[in-house]
């Protein structure tokens, strides 16, 4: 008996090579791998599962009906990739990212990434996506319980894609724990941690959860093909990728000045938040919304020297008062 892998590839090639619609009877008669003597119902179940697997691989079929008979053709426009041209820099970035993440035990999508890079290499040439030529780039993108976070993110990502609710125990930074029902809208990786953004059903509000603090995670498996929710049409996970002093409901504008060596790091420090403006003297002004004035003050000290808080006055006061206490506490 032909193994199921060969049967799937045979089926894909048979439908792809066909010039006229392929019926289940054609498949049964011509595609190598379907067991001889199998009853019709069992064959049809196997055929349906195989079609699902090929859809998961990226193939798309067009269905044509003649009376009660369905025939299948490959939908070339929906199946094949467009040509892609990458600049040398982009190709190097892809190689770098691919090499790092394929070797990262905390990366949750390694199998998909491996296939994606193979397809990209085929779509735009060999220089694009060969990731494993040399291990000059390595990563551990989520360092707390890497394998645990990878498997949790895989579950959450599947639930997000299927729009199914998830349930888990969550312990906040203040060490308060409770069970949550959440509609998972988005995931992001920042600072070595995975985060889930979603609607907390009981709290009736949006929340950001550190995946490392999630326990006993389960997705709703009832009616798997029926979504539990729709994410708001204006939801963008990027809007929730905040700096530590930006979490909170009420935001005010802040103005920060980077100078000296910090000016060269402004781009990296700002993490695409707010607006950076170059000054004539080489300094960089940063206009950024904040929700936590003390948090901003602390951030400037931790990432300094060369970072001045110009506004708001609350952040300046937190900085001045806090530093005075530090000096006093550590006086000789």
């Amino acid at each position: 008996m032909t193994d199921p892998v060969e049967r799937l590839v045979n089926l894909a090639m048979f439908v792809a090579a066909a010039r006229t619609p392929v019926t289940s009877a054609h498949v049964r008669a011509r595609v190598v791998g379907y067991p001889a003597g199998q009853d019709e119902a069992a064959f049809l179940r196997m055929f349906e599962r195989d079609k699902e697997d090929l859809l998961e691989a990226g193939l798309a079929f067009r269905v044509e009906r003649t009376g009660d008979t369905e025939g299948y053709l490959l939908d070339s426009a929906a199946t094949f990739a467009r040509d892609l041209t990458l600049s040398p820099e982009e190709a190097m970035l892809l190689r770098s990212a691919g090499s790092a993440m394929l070797g990262d035990p905390s990366f949750p999508f390694a199998a998909d990434l491996r296939i994606a890079l193979t397809k990209v290499a085929a779509a735009c040439g060999p220089r694009a996506a060969s990731a494993n030529a040399e291990s000059t780039v390595v990563a551990l993108s989520a360092d707390e319980d890497p394998a645990g976070q990878a498997s949790a993110v895989a579950v959450l990502a599947d639930a997000q894609a299927a729009r199914k609710r998830v349930r888990f125990d969550y312990t906040t930074a203040a060490r308060a724990s409770r069970r949550r029902d959440v509609e998972p809208y988005g995931l992001y990786l920042q600072g070595g941690r995975w985060y889930l953004v979603g609607r907390d059903v009981a709290a009736e509000g949006m929340r950001v959860f550190a995946v490392a603090r999630v326990r006993d995670l389960a997705a709703n498996t009832t009616r798997p093909k029926t979504p539990d929710f729709d994410a708001p049409s204006d939801f963008h996970v990027r809007d929730w990728m905040l700096l530590p002093f930006q979490y909170g409901d009420e935001r005010v504008g802040a103005l920060v000045r980077f100078h000296g060596g910090a000016a060269a790091r402004a781009d990296a420090l700002a993490r695409e938040r707010g607006v950076l403006t170059n000054e004539a003297d080489g300094a960089v002004l940063w206009s950024v919304p904040i929700a936590d004035a003390t948090g901003l003050a602390a951030w400037t000290v931790e990432n300094g020297p060369g970072i001045d808080v110009l506004d708001p006055p609350e952040a300046r006061a937190a900085l001045v008062d806090g530093l005075a206490k530090v000096v006093s506490d550590h006086a000789r």
């Binding site: 691989a57 990226g58 094949f80 990739a81 994606a116 990209v120 894609a161």
Partner: peptide
Amino acid sequence: PVRLTPAESRALSTA
């Protein structure tokens, strides 16, 4: 080459 699936696109963009 066959198109990227949504899961493959997601893996690439995450990397």
